[in-house]
């Protein structure tokens, strides 16, 4: 997934790019000239756009860009102002994140926006099991396991990054971001319940624990 970063602060730009690279994305940093052309021609799947740019303004850029493209855009700003957010959203931003941002949350937002824009009508699957977020269930060959909201959030995050390590911190942030203010113990309990349900479906060792790192769904 290619992500175009439009940010004039060079330190922030390079750190953002490292963050995205570590998270498995393909970040490209825009030059501070001819930004509109770069936005159109970059072929990015998502654009991170700063509001305060030298000589121009992210909101204006977004407004013009929206006339020509529907590529998702996340606005970044250091201004804590509802006016900026309302303006940005009305100009067609997909999300709005204020600096300084919690990096984990930023990544969650990015993946949420990408998922929304992918619009894959096809149901998600895990191996040969069908994942239904609407029903909150996993189905494999007539065997249906109902997941709780927490279990679904955890499973979704693991599934989105299948084969990669997902840290407890990331899982925790995702749960809290969904208004599930669980503690460490509750997370462990949720994981072991999820394991049991996956076991029922015939995937007994689907979630692997990596000591001091996190979990991997295989």
């Amino acid at each position: 997934m290619k992500i175009l970063i439009i940010e004039d602060d060079s330190a922030l730009r390079s750190e953002l790019s490292v963050l995205l690279k570590n998270a498995g994305y393909d970040p490209v940093c825009a030059e501070m000239t001819e930004i509109p052309a770069q936005m159109i021609n970059s072929g990015a799947d998502l654009i991170l756009l700063d509001i305060n740019l030298p000589g121009t303004n992210g909101e204006t850029l977004l407004q013009d860009f929206r006339k020509r493209s529907t590529t998702p855009v996340i606005m970044l700003t250091s201004r804590t102002s509802e006016l900026d957010e309302v303006l940005s959203m009305s100009y067609g931003a997909d999300d709005f994140v204020t600096k300084p941002y919690n990096p984990t949350i930023l990544l969650l937002r990015i993946s949420a926006v990408l998922k929304r824009s992918a619009k894959t009508g096809t149901a998600q699957t895990y191996h040969d099991a069908e994942v239904s977020t609407v029903r909150g269930s996993l189905t494999r060959g007539g065997n249906e396991q109902i997941l709780t909201k927490n279990e679904m959030i955890i499973f979704q995050l693991l599934l989105d990054r299948i084969g990669e390590i997902v840290t407890r911190d990331e899982l925790m942030t995702a749960l809290w971001d969904n208004d599930e203010f669980v503690n460490d113990n509750a997370l462990s309990v949720n994981i072991s319940r999820l394991r049991a349900k996956l076991g029922e479906l015939g995937f007994p060792d689907a979630i692997v624990t990596r000591k001091k790192q996190g979990y991997v769904l295989i």
Partner: peptide, 8 residues
């Protein structure tokens, strides 16, 4: 900006 930079 520097705070955000440091955080990242």
């Amino acid at each position: 900006l520097p705070v955000a930079g440091l955080q990242l």
